[in-house]
């Protein structure tokens, strides 16, 4: 009997997952790779779908709009993630240090709500709150004497709007990640830290901050991935407009594929995005899952 005897019952338990994942996960990616080397215009299929070598990739590299959409995505990251981290950490410190334990528990539960809400609906509510004429945001601003802002009608305010909505939705996520970091600090460490470092900033920097570092790394990597994916909220709130001023990379590729119908070029863009995503995932795994590969 050979040593590597196959455990057939175990294979039968795991096989469906492997087969389905290959069929709906890997096969489409190979399909996209194939299409990315073809001429493939959905509205001009009479032109045929012949292989065109790297022509689509050359087109992407020369496409200023594609690089601009990546640049805008980076800009969006800069507008949102630092704010989410600062507010997230502050909220986490506040909730973790609350004396009123029942209220602290309630806050932790309620913070889940923004994270879970359908992003499409978040986009719709954003339309309402940021409406120029009767939106609540402009009403609040009018109380301090600011004239109405056309949030969704001009490029910069539109970018600020989607950033604010993203900050609203994802700051609670950062806060909850940070709370789980803070909860790892034992009471003894905290007490002796208070004696050594005093309170306030010293306590935070020397005692609490080290516990927040792993969560911070996770937040940075996951937010990067999620911003590269971001589509629904922006699609509903601004459709990438006005003009292309809020067209983040996923929104742009969707437009090239499903509104311009150039599947070849869109696939080439998607493959480049995929490579970016895999590099990110590699980094994430190296940081957090070394043990599972053993």
């Amino acid at each position: 009997m050979s040593k590597s005897r196959v455990n057939w019952p175990a294979v039968a338990l795991i096989a469906p997952a492997v087969i389905i994942l290959l069929a709906v996960g890997i096969y489409p990616l190979l399909f996209a790779l194939d299409v990315s080397f073809r001429q493939y215009q959905l509205t001009k299929l009479y032109l045929g779908t012949d292989y065109v070598g790297f022509q689509n990739y050359v087109a992407v590299f020369n496409d200023a709009l594609f690089w601009q959409s990546l640049g805008r995505t980076a800009q969006f990251f800069v507008l949102t993630v630092p704010a989410q981290i600062v507010f997230g950490v502050l909220i986490a410190l506040f909730i973790d240090g609350m004396r009123w334990k029942a209220l602290s528990f309630l806050m932790r539960v309620l913070l889940v709500i923004p994270i879970a809400i359908t992003p499409t609906v978040v986009g719709l509510v954003g339309r309402l709150l940021f409406n120029r004429d009767f939106g609540f945001i402009n009403y609040l601003l009018s109380l301090v004497g600011v004239p109405p802002v056309s949030w969704l009608g001009e490029p910069l305010p539109a970018m600020v709007t989607i950033a604010l909505v993203d900050i609203w939705q994802w700051t609670p996520f950062v806060a909850l990640v940070m709370i789980s970091g803070l909860s790892l600090i034992s009471q003894e460490v905290l007490e002796s830290g208070k004696l050594d470092a005093g309170g306030g900033w010293n306590l935070f920097w020397h005692v609490q901050a080290p516990y927040l570092l792993p969560g911070l790394t996770a937040v940075l990597i996951l937010r990067t991935a999620d911003i590269l994916k971001l589509f629904d909220m922006v699609f509903v709130l601004t459709r990438g407009g006005p003009g292309v001023s809020t067209e983040l990379v996923s929104v742009y590729i969707q437009r090239v594929g499903f509104r311009i119908f150039d599947m070849g070029v869109a696939s080439a863009q998607a493959i480049l995005l995929l490579i970016l995503c895999i590099v990110l995932a590699r980094g994430y795994i190296r940081l957090f899952y070394r043990e599972v590969e053993a």
Binding site: Y27, L29, F31, A225, F258, S267
Partner: peptide, 26 residues
Amino acid sequence: KADLWFWIITNRFISPIVVALPFFLI
């Protein structure tokens, strides 16, 4: 097993537009 793990975690990072384009055509 390691490859399967990698696939499972990578999935968390892949932008849906990458899958949506070919899935539409299929």
